[in-house]
Design a binder for these strands. Structure first.
Lengths: 114, 114
DNA sequence: TCTATGGTTCACCGTATGGCAAACCATAGC
DNA sequence: GCTATGGTTTGCCATACGGTGAACCATAGA
């Protein structure tokens, strides 16, 4: 399992901030320019641009500048990559829990035959 | 959508570190004492304990001390909570992509009738 | 060409993070 | 009781993070 993965590092880090999660949540509905994305937040543009940079460097979003407006769009690959790591852990957990349940059952049967 | 969620903040933050992800990955196979968890890593115990603290405060793991050994076990709830946020985003993305596809198709039909 | 708009850069600040070494505490086992 | 073991606390350090204000750049539109 690739626990030591730079892309997971940056993706999880990017998602650890409510502002950035909100941006992702907005972008799943489609691309948007920086100003529109920044509108709902109290902070200044420089701070907001830093968040966008973090998202872009994590590969969660891609941006393109046409004229003077920069358009941001979601890059769903990274989202599914992190989702897959999580679901894999849960799958392992479930398998392990099943093993545990099976073991407990075995023990109970042995108790019966005592 | 709860983008502004302290538990998502701390969970994602906790998972943004390869050491902590490795600990989670180990704990899906079952509970383990601190020393065993720390063994694979180069860092000293104090540093490692900080990681455990982050994991515990995020709710991803729970720990209990019996005698002089502290046992750590996974708390799968938080894992599924973060997984659910991600899958929700992807679901919205898919829906939006489908809408886009439907729209494109509509446009093509309109082109045909021109 | 002038102006407003949308972004960008820069310098700075306080706090959080991730690591260390060293000293310390508490219990298991002889 | 002594010692080894497993864990904890404390103080320190360098770097990263999230924000600010001010100055700046480049293009769209009158």
């Amino acid at each position: 399992m690739a626990n030591h993965s730079a892309s997971l590092d940056t993706a999880f880090h990017a998602l650890a901030d409510p502002t950035r999660r909100a941006v992702v949540h907005r972008l799943v509905r489609g691309a948007a320019p920086v100003k529109e994305l920044a509108a709902p937040f109290e902070m200044g543009l420089p701070a907001f641009l830093k968040h966008l940079r973090v998202l872009e460097e994590s590969g969660l979003i891609a941006t393109e500048k046409r004229g003077r407006v920069r358009t941001c769009r979601l890059q769903p690959g990274r989202l599914t990559e992190t989702e897959r790591w999580l679901s894999r852990q849960r799958a392992l957990w479930d398998a392990s829990a099943e093993r545990l349940a099976a073991y407990v059952e075995t023990q109970m049967e042995e108790d019966e035959t005592e």
